[in-house]
Design a binder for these strands. Sequence first.
DNA 1: TTGATCGTACCGCTATGCGGTACACCATAC
DNA 2: GTATGGTGTACCGCATAGCGGTACGATCAA
Lengths: 268, 268
Amino acid sequence: MTESKDRAFVNGLARGLAVMSAFKPDRNRMSLGELSKETGLPKTTVARLIHTLVKLGYVYADPDSGRFQLHPRVLTLGYPVMASMDKRHVALPMMQELAEYSRGTVSLGIRDGLSMILIERSRDSTVRALPLDIGSRIPIHTTSMGRAYFAAAGEFEQKDILAQIETFDPKGFKKIEKSLREGEREYREKGYCTAIGSWENDVNAVGVAVELSNDALAAFNCGGPSTRIAEENLDDLGRRLAELARHFQTADWVGQLPPRPYKGVSPP
Amino acid sequence: MTESKDRAFVNGLARGLAVMSAFKPDRNRMSLGELSKETGLPKTTVARLIHTLVKLGYVYADPDSGRFQLHPRVLTLGYPVMASMDKRHVALPMMQELAEYSRGTVSLGIRDGLSMILIERSRDSTVRALPLDIGSRIPIHTTSMGRAYFAAAGEFEQKDILAQIETFDPKGFKKIEKSLREGEREYREKGYCTAIGSWENDVNAVGVAVELSNDALAAFNCGGPSTRIAEENLDDLGRRLAELARHFQTADWVGQLPPRPYKGVSPP
DNA sequence: TTGATCGTACCGCTATGCGGTACACCATAC
DNA sequence: GTATGGTGTACCGCATAGCGGTACGATCAA
């Protein structure tokens, strides 16, 4: 119904994963109704899917509150990915160093759709909470990491990104495109991108992309709340982050990553 | 077919997740045939499931090699879990410190079935590769973390664990039980469990459990290759790890975790 | 009380996912 | 050259799995 007439498309699986993704970081205890609303699926269907997930151990049903939450077991699903990128750890000491120096957070991410997914992070030891953990998504167009990625992405991937943005947000498109182009210029001139409150108020950051050997692209950022990362320090941090990135440029230090889409071919 | 006559059990979802779990850390590029062999599902079925996963972006199909690999996007599935346990970071600085001191790795894990799943880790900066990343599973009965967990688990959960072991490995059961009971005694006497080459040759470690406020239990370990973590240092490290754990005992510092199963009730 | 929730049970229908079998392709082998 | 073993893909008839209504018992709040 929702999907096209694709004989080979297993709806149950797609819906089940949709239910899993419906759990949000800030609300990880959900009821059937909420999940139903979130996914747009009928409550009965959600009940069936959740039932399955509980049986498989991916979801935990709290008998008291009658709510559901993702079980840590889902982390195992991601583990092969983590393991395939095990070499990324060689960057950790330098990331940690910069995190301490900046008193903020240093992360590494790759693109997925219109987001960057964080695959490694380190933080200054005085940071209490860590809002951006491994696996979190941040948007491309408002963040320093995303903008740096865009700047380094090359013509074809840029087209792909822009096309997706246009589909997703036709009204804001022009403005976003302009902003991304500005970021590109900034990146060319300075070697890094800045984001001053553009992602969230009072959060400043700088971003630098790294090109990996196997046609994959990733990006670092370094940032934090403006109380820690002052606007006037961004230039210093940007230069240091670019220096950091230079150490890892074009080396097979991350591990196996999917290459960028459409290197040369336009999106379907 | 595989599952019982459960009208509410969505087979497609279960099989899809089985396919995802079929990707192993060391072999994350799989062919249809391999996946079929691994999961025991007919090739056609795997093809359909993989097709779905590719469309959803959770699996990447490499057009050159014709192989499939998990896409980093799967990390997003685990993110809400990570986020719900965000408070665990308060332990990181101390973990890091001990990792540096011991020149090994310090991790935190919780139980899932007969494994411990690692939810946080830190390592000495001179460690090159990190075999045990977030999301990885290690067995309960051969590891210091698992044995410490068992020792602290309490009667009912211990029974559950033992029952599962007996089901899984009826022959080895007696021996494993005895070994776990020994671990329990060690834990009571010394305050930590040791594992000397029992998990993998030439890997030594100590483990200590932490009881959390919401009926959840977790465990730390500290270990590494015997070239780094010598057997004669284990006592020192064990005491330090126990000291570390004491800082976090019975405090809501991890975040929302599922409580232990069957606190008082015998397994169904 | 009433009115929202919550999750569960039931049930008839048909689209859907199943798993055969067959094929086109590409290596490596000899 | 042509086997052989491996890819992934296409096709197709069938049975049933999964769908999504509707209805219900429990809770909890007001």
